[in-house]
Each structure stands twice: as structure tokens, then as C-alpha cells.
Design a protein around this nucleic acid. Sequence first.
RNA 1: GCGCCUGUAGCUCAGCUGGAUAGAGCAACUGCCUUCUAAGCAGUGGGUCAGGAGUUCGAAUCUCUUCAGGCGCGCCA
Length: 581
Amino acid sequence: MIEALNEEINKFLSSLSNIEKNALDEIKKRYSSGVTDDLSKGHLTTNVCMIAASKLKKNPKELAFTLKKELIDSNKFKSVEIAGPGFINIALKREDFISIIKNINTQSSSFGSSDHGKNQSIQIEFVSANPTGPLHVGHGRGAAYGDAIGRILKSSGYSVQKEYYINDAGRQIDILTASVFIRIYEEELMGYFPQNAYKGLYISDIAKLFKEVHKVAPLIDSKELIHNLPKDEEKEIDELIIRIKNKENAKWLDIKSLALSQVLQTIRTDLEDFNVTFDNWFSESSLGDLTDEGSKISLAINSLKNKGLAYEENGAIWLTTVKDGDDKNRVLIRDDGRATYFASDVAYHKDKIDRGFDKLINVWGADHHGYIKRIEASINGLGFDKTSLDVRLVQFANLFKDGKKVKMSTRSGEFFSLADLINEIGTDAARFYYLSKQADQHLDFDLSLAKADSKENIFYYIQYAHARICSLQKKYLNVSASMPSEANSIAKGSYKNCDKLIHEMSKYPSVILRASLSLQPHLIIFYLKDFAHCFHSFYNDNQVLTESKENIEAIIYCLNAAKIILSNGLGMLGIKPIEKM
RNA sequence: GCGCCUGUAGCUCAGCUGGAUAGAGCAACUGCCUUCUAAGCAGUGGGUCAGGAGUUCGAAUCUCUUCAGGCGCGCCA
């Protein structure tokens, strides 16, 4: 019915005298019509008169008076009122208001979806954690967020691709490989273990597996490998890596290959358990090498050089990023000839754009915010529109258990992994609490609360509403052959108590649209909380199953719509509704 | 020092491209279970939207500024 209202409003706007086309277009763009906050203001409301008034320098109430008359004359609505500074509030005819129930039941799982995206292609890159160990709870938030906005955008009519970028080419992978190497040759190396190697149990597991699948030949010279290494922790591990690569290259490559595939498999499994899947896994190493002139990384850097944006200084190759607002220019190729992580990233983003997406979304940890300017500069430099990239920052989540903060560090091996979290509270509750606050804000994740059977656990509050409806339906089907398909007594007005519930349901599509435009899943959570409250209140006021047969049918039909709302809303968050508590 | 984010009820947070009396949960206090799941409902109290100035019909929302807190400022990834 909002469409019908807007149609009348547009007719009204066009009929205004002395209106320029520009002004008309702007008013049409800026005004909004929607569902009222609550029934005391009618069903629908529009601010068009206030918007038009400021544009046309007229009195909003005068405009409202004229519009009101035309809306009444259209005979499409039950009543029209002017309110406050110039709002127009509309009450729908009973049958139009009630039609929302049938609408939801008919559209069912697709209710709330739209074609707003017009099938534009969006690529979302998220998680992309270094494959050096299992995912921790910090990664979980990015995973939940990226996956949720993927689901929301898809339902809003976008063609979505979800991608994981595997940083499998850098120093971190070398450290991972060295860590496994040391565990494999623990005895020969006489228990030597550098400070900066990864200490997690999974390293030993990979070492053990390696020994099972490969014939482990003895080291050529174990003493030489660890003899007289630098004292500095960083230099120590780097020197060790160089020595192993030089002296034991075949073993190094075998170990690296197994370590990487094992860690990636763990990550993939953890994500699947977390109900997150990717359409594409993109490997950094596939960007190739600087020594290969035809590689993606060489082509990207040459393109920047040819445009005069990359220059040499102090033996390194730099990209001018300052003109795009960066603090300083950035190094692409180090003075020793190796590419930086940034160079790979430039090539990666070029590749993404070359693949033809209309829009790219990167979900990054908030600690990377200083990185945005330079990547935008590189996109600009490559001749693309930097506004096609939207970087969404996700703040770290602090985990609290029994009132104490849980620390996380991959290297020390002491961390609360995503898998631990899933074991502790389950995938759905974990996703729910990750998404319960704006992604770019700090989140205190309280494990005890997420598990609690108490009122303050909003996750169960919402699920409880769904379960209660399921329970009613089950009881109804004990005495009836099939689910009802009409809400006659509500339509006739002989059962009015659920109007508030219906009104609340009618807000759902606009909530989804708003969440998709702003990429904010938490809006859905807040809506669901309000909606669940509305349902619980209704449930408390009515003894449904003792009503007349006609009323029972009408209410069960109506509550099925409510169940669809809850189920669809949770579905946007990747959460399964609970049928029984 | 520069940049980004944040400051709303005792606590944790919502608040749409500026709109109607600033909302919710928890905590506190009152009530509601012989009836569909009380993990529920109804109600009461609680606010100078950090401070100040500006923009306008209208500001928690936009601009400037002060104060307070967090994060980032590598030829790391």
C-alpha cells in the first residue's frame, strides 16, 4: 500500500503549479513514506509536505491540507490526518491492512526480499585470516558480519560472491613452516625452539601427520642449522628460515605444502561449522612472482609505473599515495627486490575489478583502517573508480568468561578459538551476539550471558517466540487436518487484538532494505527483539486455543505470518530458528 | 604530533538520507502462573543526548570548537 500512497503523492507533486523539474526530482528523491511507529499514528505516514515546503518555500501545513484532500478523494484509504509539523498519517481500509497477513503467508520465505539491487554484482571479501593457525574469536566477528551482509544483499536483489583471500605467500607462512619443521626434528635439534615460532598444539599435530605420510629423512647437518643464531627474536627466526630453505629445500617445500593445506582445511571446517561458506578461495600465490613479467603482480606494478605513479627512491619502488590523502607514499618493492604485502594487495584488487564486479566490499579488522587510503590510491592509480570499493571495518571482540577477559594470541598458542566458542555456546548464539552490535564498534562478548537461561539473553527471547508459535501450531494440528489459509474474523474486525502484531510485521521489508543499504545486520536483531516482544505480549493477552473455531483459524493463520517473519529475519543472520525449547 | 572511531538512563546499547512527547534490555521497586512453554507479561521510578557555539521551520543526528576514552600511524602482514 506504500506504493499506492506514493503514486498519489507523485501525482500531487506534479500537479503543483510553478514547480521546476529539478525541484520536483529532488523532492521525489528526498521524501519518504513508510509504516508509522505505532498505531496511534495510523498505518502509514509521509513527510513529503515538509520536504516539499522547505524546497518550495511554502507552508508545510498548507501543502498538507491540499494533499489530504486529494488523498481522501482518491478513495484508496480509510482516513487521512495531518499531524505535528506537517506529517500526513493514513489509516488503511480494513481489508488492505489485513492483506499483509495473506501477503506474508503467500510469499513465505521470500517475504522481505526485493529487487532493489537490480542484480548488480557485489563481491564481499572477508575473514581472509592468515593461514597460520585456527581462527580465533576475533575472526569470528568478521565471518559472521561478512556472511550476514552477503545474505542480506542477496535477498535485496544483488548477485553476491563471497571470497576468502589466502595470504599464502608471505613471511608468516615461512614461520608456520619453520615451526612445523622444528617439531618434526625435535629430537635432532635437541629440543631447540625459537621464541617467535608458533607454539600451538596444532603445529605438533601437523608435524605428527607429516611423519606419518612422508618418509622423514634425517637432517643433513642439524647442528649447523641452529648454530650461533642471532639473539634478536625476529632475526633469529628469519635466519633459521633462510638456513632451512638453503640446506633442506626439498623437506621445506613438502612441509610447507602440508602445513598450509592442513591449516586451510581447519579454517574451512571451522567456518562451515559456523555456517559460513565461500564461493571462491583466492590464493595470494596465484598472483605470481616479480621475476615473471607476465604475472598479475608484475602487470599491476608495471601499469602503475607506466602511469608515472610509481618511482624509485633509496633502492625501493614507491607508489604515490599522498595525493589521495595518505600520510606518506608507500613501498611496493623493497630495496632487496621483494614485493611488499601492499604490492600483492594492489594486484589482488586489480584482479577483483578486472573480474567485472559492480562493487567490491572488503571486511577488514579495524586495526587496518590506516590501510584504506593507500589501497584506494592504488585503485585510482590503476584507472578505476575508487568508490566501487567499500571497506567495512570490524572491531575486535573482547571475550569475557566468568567476568574475566579472555586473551588471544595466535603465536603463543594460548587462545580461545572460534571452534572453542562454537563448542561453548553453539553457532547460532555466537553469530547472534557477534551481530548484535554495529560491526565497527567494540563488542564485549559475554559467554556466560550467551549461555544463560535468563531473561537478559535476547537470543533465546527471540527464539522463544518462534518456539511458542510452533507449539501452538502443533497443538492446532492435533485437532485439525490442515493449516488455515484465511484470517476472516480478524478481517471483519471481530478479533482485533493482533493489529499491533500485524502492524509490526508490515515494517519488516523496510528493515531488511535499510539493513542492506547500510550493511548493518544489527538493525534486524533490534527489530526482531521488538517484534518478539510484541508477540509475547499478544500471547500473554490471549488464550488462543480456547477461542471460537473461526477465531482460532484466523489467529493461527496470522501467527504463521509472525513465524515467517521470525524465521526470515533469523535467516538473514544465518541463524536457524528453534522449534522447541 | 597526525589520522580514524567513540561519548545517549546506574550498566549494556538502539535511535533511518535532520522530523512528531529521546527508546529497549539489565539492575531497583509493584503486580500476573489450577488455562496454549513464567526463557513470558503488565506497571513505576530513572536523561542538560560529554560541554560550548553555529546552520533552520525543526538538531541526539549536520558544521566548528573544547574536554574525555579507544585504536592506527613499518621497506610487517
